[in-house]
Design a binder for these strands. Structure first.
Lengths: 203, 203
DNA sequence: GTCTATACTGAGATAGAC
DNA sequence: GTCTATCTCAGTATAGAC
């Protein structure tokens, strides 16, 4: 069939998102997609490369939406100060929107960040937009030095990844809360964190 | 030998912390510990149970330190208001202290939280102290409703886990920053997040 | 070019001899 | 308590049918 590739991609996206990448075997994927084992390797090369292709197919639009959102925020700010929450929203809201239509893929993205899964894949897909995002953040919170800003970005990624996966570490939180609400709360929480004063240099 | 168990535990702790749990095979562990494959299954039952035992051995003291720290914070506050940052420090600083002497184990704890690894293990080891911690937090930020507090705790766990693993998602951050400095910055960031005003109920 | 059948290696687990 | 042998299932590689 012509759409063997499609079937593999669709099935892999679903199973990786639902069960996690490592917890899903290729044999599960090929059974669910009703194709042969070797087809995966023929079309994609390896399990890692399959993941890469799965992400490739869907990550582009999210990145574009993020950049457009950030464009608007920067245009509205003009030469004036940039609002932290607006910058954070430009990064997080497109994800929330995608989560409405495709929650499993968003979970997969969350997993990839938090499981430290395939750093090279994450990097290739997100690094460029992430860099622009960090620059906007630096402008929004100019009281922070580079080092301190980067640490807060690091904290942000952790919080974000953990929130996207939909996996409460303990049964603390109502995971049925819709994504836009989650993200609004996350933006507020992180915004306040970024606004917090810088440490005095005293070490 | 009598200390076969010990050797396995020590080696497993090191390799799991360095490489991750899933990325480490039992065969690596038994080779490094110079014991037989079956010894692991004899002493621990399974790879999962070995992880459990590894965590068991070291997690207790951290929990005790956390609870003692929280005792002090609550005693100092008396019936007055509880400081958020103090509560956060009670949870995070014992980890930072352990990280000084045993960084790999702390990385392993971080991985366990963020990889969604063995939820039952995490729960058994941390649930009780986590509940007391959440109650103290609720007292420190009484302006938050239950739901909103829990979401912020969720964000906190993500940020914390990501910070403990020592795995920067992209090469953004200087991982050589010592743990106490990291944790001080994290406490400040999270403290501001928890202090952020509650959302108006408008959905 | 696309796919199938099959075999190879290494993982975790288990039974049973010592 | 310890070790050998063996089982099942994972990811991967390749030869060859269409």
């Amino acid at each position: 069939m012509i759409d063997t590739k499609q079937k593999i991609l669709d099935t892999a996206e679903r199973l990786f998102g639902e069960q996690g990448f490592r917890a899903t075997s290729l044999r599960q994927v090929i059974a669910a997609a009703k194709v042969n084992v070797a087809a995966v390797h023929y079309h994609f090369g390896s399990k890692d490369d399959l993941l890469d292709a799965v992400v490739d197919r869907k990550a582009g639009p999210v990145t574009v939406a993020r950049m457009e959102w950030l464009d608007r925020v920067e245009a509205e700010a003009g030469t004036g100060p940039l609002n932290v929450e607006d910058v954070l929203a430009s990064f997080l809201m497109p994800t929330a929107e995608m989560a409405q239509s495709n929650p499993t893929f968003v979970r997969l993205m969350g997993r990839m960040l938090s499981e430290g899964m395939m750093p090279s894949i994450v990097e290739r897909h997100f690094r460029e937009s992430a860099m622009r995002f960090v620059m906007a953040l630096a402008r929004a919170v100019p009281h922070l030095g580079r080092e301190e800003l980067m640490w807060r970005v690091h904290f942000m990624i952790g919080a974000m990844a953990h929130t996207l996966t939909g996996q409460p570490a303990m049964h603390m939180v109502d995971m049925s809360t819709d994504f836009p609400t989650r993200v609004r709360q996350l933006v507020k929480f992180l915004g306040a964190g970024f606004r917090a004063p810088a440490e005095r240099e005293e070490n």
